[in-house]
Every structure is written in structure tokens, then in C-alpha cells.
């Protein structure tokens, strides 16, 4: 298999498979969560569940003081990583074109050097978190194979993307193929691992906010 054939496969069959598994996986996980169901709360509502739910989705972006005092390092690293990842995925022009070809939506991108800087920040954030995980005894004890796996499948697309943009180590078509393949791996694993927090965080936060809102207490 030449690098061109490899690239053609990951851009064609490979990507189609990955997207299909990704879409099926997300719908399946959402159905699973919803089907857990909750009994209707017969108590009198003391507040609006929905507004509290939506509010909580957003205000949980700002960490609680207690948590901040205990683990400021991990919050900062995670913040940089998540913001960086968001920018890199959604504001790099080739990525926007890819999303457009799947769902038909476009928006303006950022100049490439800016995206490049965010990619570096994101990778530094990820490395910092890995370092933290393997140097903190308690965290290391709690870490499972899955934690390292999801770290790796998140890091690989960033690394290969960075190499592909700077055209380092391999030929550009090989790099692009490796980058797309690593993303396909991420897409396939995302719904079935801890990475599913990328969409379940919305449900979880909404639910936490909503029960508190219903009871008229602060979430």
C-alpha cells in the first residue's frame, strides 16, 4: 500500500466507517441514558427546573472555590487543553470545510499560525495532565488502562496534525493520512469511553441543575 492509497482509504472508506460508528454510538449512548428514566417528582415545584438546568451547564465552567483550592494546577491545565482543543478542531479552515461537507454548515476560520499556537498549548496541557497523573500517587493508583488510552487517542490527532501542518518526519500525504486515521480512532472510541463526556457533560450538568432548581436550591 502506497501512502496515496493509504490516504485515499482513510479519506474514503475509513472516514465513512468512523463517522457511521461515531453517529451510531452517540445516538445509542443518548438513548441508553434517556431510557434510564426518572419517576415524575410529585412534590410541588419551588423553582424552574429548566432555567436552573441551562444555567448550570454554563456556570460549571467556572470551578468551585473548594475545588480550585485543592487542584488549581489540573484546572488550569485542563482549561488550556479544552479551549485549545475547541479552537483547533473548530477554527482550522480545513476542518471547517470537512464539517461543512458532512453537515453543510460553515463559519469563518482563524489564521493558521494562531491555530498552530493553540495546538501547541493544547499539547502542553495534555502533557501536563499526563505528568500529573503519573506523578501523583493517588491519581496514579486510581488510573486505569482506559485513562491512558483516551489520553493517547486525544493526543495523537494533535501530534499528527501538528506534524502534518509543519511537514515534519514523513511525507505530507503520509502525515495527512496518519492524522485522519488517528482522528478516526478517536471518533470510534469516543462514544464508548470516558471521552463521551464531550456530550454527556451537557446532560449531567443539566440534570444536576434541574433537580436543584426544582427544589428551589442552589445547584
Amino acid at each position: 500500500m502506497t501512502s496515496t492509497e493509504f490516504l485515499l482509504w482513510v479519506k474514503g472508506t475509513g472516514f465513512t466507517l468512523a463517522i457511521a460508528v461515531f453517529a451510531a454510538g452517540i445516538v445509542l449512548r443518548l438513548a441508553e441514558i434517556w431510557s434510564l428514566g426518572r419517576k415524575p417528582d410529585l412534590a410541588e415545584a419551588k423553582g424552574n427546573a429548566n432555567t436552573a438546568g441551562v444555567r448550570t451547564i454554563f456556570n460549571r465552567f467556572i470551578p468551585d472555590k473548594g475545588i480550585w483550592d485543592r487542584s488549581a494546577f489540573i484546572i488550569i491545565a485542563a482549561w488550556f487543553f479544552h479551549v485549545g482543543l475547541f479552537v483547533v478542531i473548530f477554527f482550522f479552515v480545513p476542518h471547517i470545510l470537512l464539517i461543512d461537507s458532512i453537515i453543510g454548515l460553515q463559519w469563518p476560520g482563524l489564521p493558521t499560525p494562531i491555530v498552530d499556537a493553540f495546538a501547541v498549548i493544547t499539547m502542553v496541557g495534555l502533557l501536563a495532565m499526563l505528568f500529573h497523573r503519573i506523578t501523583q500517587p493517588v491519581k496514579k493508583y486510581l488510573s486505569t488502562f482506559e485513562d491512558y488510552l483516551v489520553w493517547a487517542v486525544t493526543f495523537l490527532p494533535l501530534l499528527t496534525g501538528y506534524l502534518a501542518y509543519h511537514r515534519l518526519l514523513f511525507s505530507p500525504d503520509m502525515l495527512l493520512a496518519m492524522h485522519i486515521l488517528s482522528v478516526e480512532l478517536l471518533l470510534v472510541l469516543l462514544p464508548f469511553t470516558k471521552l463521551s463526556h464531550s456530550f454527556t457533560f451537557l446532560l449531567a450538568r443539566w440534570y444536576n441543575g434541574a433537580i436543584s432548581g426544582f427544589r428551589g436550591v442552589q445547584s
Binding site: 485515499l8 479519506k11 474514503g12 472508506t13 472516514f15 465513512t16 463517522i19 480545513p94 476542518h95 470545510l97 470537512l98 461537507s101 458532512i102 453537515i103 453543510g104 495527512l176
Partner: peptide, 9 residues
């Protein structure tokens, strides 16, 4: 170049 070649949608 970044667009997939299959009928992804």
C-alpha cells in the same frame, strides 16, 4: 483536500 471522499453525510 480535507473533505472526505465517501458519502459521509
Amino acid at each position: 483536500l480535507s473533505r472526505p471522499t465517501g458519502q459521509t453525510g
